[in-house]
Amino acid sequence: METVAVYFEKPVRTYGIKARLGNIALSLECTADQLTGLTATLAALEPPLQLVSCSLMWEGDLALLQVCLPQDQAPRLEEAAARTGVGTAQCSQAGVVNLQGPHFGDRWGLASEALCGMESAGVEPLSILGVTHTIQVTLAPESSGAALEGLGRGFCAPGGDNG
């Protein structure tokens, strides 16, 4: 194991903290067979479906697929889901805040910092994803301002440009 960097930062430096609005977060529940059909359909879509984020987990025999995408792309996903018999469990307008910084995927405490920021702002997100070097918070668009303020207590952007 090679040690490539040593960090201790407060606040945690990021490459930038911005809220992206104008998205739809769709939650889909499907069986394994339905998921196979849906993903094959989505893989064949031309032009490809634009994406903000995608996540999947299983609960028993049900796959829970959450897809956040630009608003104008949502009808294409809903149509593909309907064609493959997949129901939409939840559909929400969504803002997205990405926190990205050096070695984010290898440093403890960053998820906690993000969750503390959200809690201190009184914001309950729709979802949080921590994958490789990005923490992505999906939330109701009207909460974006408060979320940026809360996250700004633990994270900073170059030049203090939080927002």
Partner: peptide, 30 residues
Amino acid sequence: GGMTLPAEALACLAGAGLHPLALGTSLAAM
């Protein structure tokens, strides 16, 4: 920035009878 990678990966794994326990995307990766 597209759905192609996760959709292809899930479809491909499903075709081999494999289902990931979880999946997530970042800005640049899956």
